[in-house]
């Protein structure tokens, strides 16, 4: 049942190759700045993939997904502030906290549907946002500088090395793409996608959908927390802005822009979104006025996003 190669495949391949070679390509082109741009893009792509998992394949439109970016980031920031810089402590805490928060939030909001689901995810995320704003000890609005990137020890993965940092992000991105693909085609993914299509019928088949949707919600939260962990390390900085509702909105836009429910849509969306906003903002300070309508046009007229335009029609592309 393989569909034939489409331009969507070509674009996806090209992007992966580009991500893999930028640390060598950018200096050669005398544009070293592109290394950090692509590192950022890949982190956003990881977050967008995690959102796509629940929104694209499960129909759960979370308007608070950036909260896990913040939690993953603050795990690095706050522990670092207290001189705990070992990744072997930071990472499990980041993952555990994201899983716990996603579990609690999921239990609360998965009972609802549609606009209520969107509003409740937003409200819950804003609670954590305000918590971070009110944490004076950790810099409140101003955020927290991170002196030392997470340490894996014994020269295993030295994130202080820019190239290692870059390829760590790249490896996580590949891992998330792979995981997304397997999950979507697996039995778990069948239930998730079917429940988006017709939840009542899935129950009438004998599958209690709630626990599967909750599991997907938690997995997505953890994956996004990983992006937060990487972002904090890359920028050496965390602030409440990481989990502002704007960020959640941008994640949704990226995913829709790239093409929801496609495997490479989130990556493509992150690339287009960040490059476009970067370029437009250097041309005019009123770039939002151009960007906003552009996004609306894409959502209205290209429902499959960029990947849809390029001929990607199924979940397997």
């Amino acid at each position: 049942m393989r569909s034939q190669l489409t331009p969507a495949h070509a674009v996806a391949t090209l992007l992966i190759v580009l991500c893999a070679t930028i640390p060598y390509l950018a200096p050669a082109l005398d544009e070293p700045f592109y290394v950090i741009v692509f590192a950022r893009i890949m982190i956003w792509a990881i977050a967008a993939i995690s959102l796509n998992l629940i929104m694209g394949f499960g129909g759960m439109i979370s308007f608070g997904h950036a909260v896990y970016l913040g939690i993953g980031g603050y795990a690095v920031g706050i522990l670092g502030f207290h001189d705990v810089t070992s990744a072997w402590i930071q990472l499990p805490i980041a993952i555990g906290l994201c899983a716990l928060v996603a579990l609690v939030f999921g239990v609360i909001c998965l009972r609802t549907r549609g606009i209520y689901f969107i509003m409740i995810t937003l409200a819950l995320a804003q609670m954590v946002f305000f918590l971070s704003v009110s944490a004076e000890r950790y810099g409140s609005d101003d955020g927290l500088n991170i002196l030392w990137r997470s340490e894996f020890g014994s020269g295993l993965i030295d994130l202080e090395d820019g190239v290692v940092m870059y390829y760590t992000i790249f490896a996580v991105l590949l891992g998330c793409l792979l995981l997304q693909w397997r999950m979507v085609v697996s039995r778990f993914g069948m239930v998730l996608r079917a429940s988006q299509s017709n939840d009542t019928r899935v129950q009438a088949i004998g599958i209690p959908t709630y626990r599967y949707r909750l599991a997907a919600f938690v997995i997505a939260g953890v994956m996004c927390g990983l992006a937060g962990f990487l972002q904090a390390n890359l920028e050496r900085f965390v602030s409440p802005d990481m989990m502002n509702w704007h960020r959640s909105g941008e994640l949704i836009l990226m995913t829709v822009l790239g093409g929801t429910a496609t495997l490479f849509g989130p990556l493509v969306g992150a690339v287009v979104f960040l490059l476009l906003s970067e370029t437009l903002s250097t041309i005019t300070i009123h770039w939002h006025l151009v960007f906003g309508p552009f996004l609306i046009l894409v959502v209205l007229f290209a429902r499959g996003g960029v990947m849809g335009l390029l001929g990607s029609r199924t979940t397997r592309d």
């Binding site: 995981l179 397997r182 085609v185 697996s186 778990f188 599958i207 599967y212 599991a215």
Partner: peptide, 10 residues
Amino acid sequence: HSFRFWQSAM
């Protein structure tokens, strides 16, 4: 149960 995350169902 359908908590199987890897092998392709189809």
